[in-house]
């Protein structure tokens, strides 16, 4: 069976791109690239994926090489898309869909993000329940809920900014800390710590750090270091934002 190399490369590129842009691991991207290659009896396929881009070389007959480089600029988490790509690579392996169909579906997945109109509320509620888990009460719950919603509205406004991640996290940290301290001080009861931790929970890079260490242990050194750098950036920008507010509160004597 003759394979259209151009289309095959396009399918492989889109699959890897969607996986890396939506929070998939680099080894998952590499495995998917090889998996699709194998299902079309490609003689040689080699790939290197990092969180900021990937390189693929395929050789269908073992003589002519085709190479592709793709830069990854935006990174979010969308597990639905990762699952969809996984399904398509399975179907390609079983040859239950053609390359054209796969390409069409991948392009659809890439261009269409399911926008849930309640997504702001999810961030707020998640923050609120984490606050309860960390020992908050009703007052803390509602403060975290509102600051969570406010933070996710603001981070949308920052999306088109240069160095978006740093600025949005700094502002988010500051807003959460400000609300937590302001509400607990004005109400003269309650504890601001659970609000800040709960509110930051959806933003904290704990999972990114875990992934960084896991990638490093798997031998994906480049990806491990890149993820560690990202985690460090997020942690320090959150700490900078919340830290300034906490520092001001301590030095002006609002908190002691």
């Amino acid at each position: 069976m003759e394979v259209n190399i151009g289309k095959l490369l396009k399918v492989i590129k889109l699959s890897a791109q969607i996986i890396l842009e939506n929070g998939g691991e680099t080894y998952r991207a590499e495995e998917t690239i090889e998996f699709i290659g194998e299902s079309f009896n490609v003689k040689e396929i080699e790939s290197i994926a990092t969180p900021t881009g990937f390189y693929i070389t395929i050789s269908v007959n073992g003589e002519d090489n085709h190479t592709l480089v793709k830069r990854i600029r935006k990174r979010t988490i969308d597990l639905q898309k990762i699952n969809d790509v996984n399904n398509i690579s399975r179907q390609l392996y079983l040859h239950s869909i053609t390359l054209d169909q796969a390409l069409e579906e991948l392009e659809y997945i890439n261009n269409n993000t399911a926008s849930d109109k309640y997504s702001l509320l999810y961030v707020g509620l998640s923050s609120g329940f984490f606050t309860l888990l960390f020992g908050g009460r009703i007052l803390e719950f509602f403060t975290a809920l509102f600051s969570g919603i406010l933070v996710s509205i603001m981070s949308r406004g920052f999306v088109n900014f240069h160095s978006y991640q740093f600025f949005s996290n700094t502002v988010a940290g500051a807003v959460i800390a400000f609300f937590a301290i302001a509400v607990t001080t004005l109400a003269n009861t309650g504890n601001y710590n659970p609000i800040i931790v709960g509110g930051m929970m959806p933003l904290l890079p704990g999972l990114a750090m875990t992934n960084a260490i896991r990638d490093t242990m798997r031998g994906d050194l480049l990806s491990g270091i890149a993820r560690a750098a990202e985690a460090l950036l997020v942690a320090s920008s959150l700490a900078a934002g919340a830290g300034v507010v906490l520092y001001l509160a301590y030095s002006t004597g609002i908190l002691s």
Binding site: G23, G24, E25, R28, I77, L79, I82, N83, N86, F130, L133, F134, N193, I196, V197, M200, M201, L204, P205, G206, L207, T210, A235, L238, A239, A242, G243, L246, Y247, Y250
Partner: peptide, 27 residues
């Protein structure tokens, strides 16, 4: 993929409180 089940489930255990306390101590 197993990731889909692991990522959201592991979040409550991730030591966010530890990271926050570290920052608080620095401040």
């Amino acid at each position: 993929p197993a990731t889909i089940f692991i990522f959201p489930a592991v979040i409550p255990i991730v030591p966010g409180y530890g990271l926050y306390q570290t920052m608080l101590a620095i401040v």
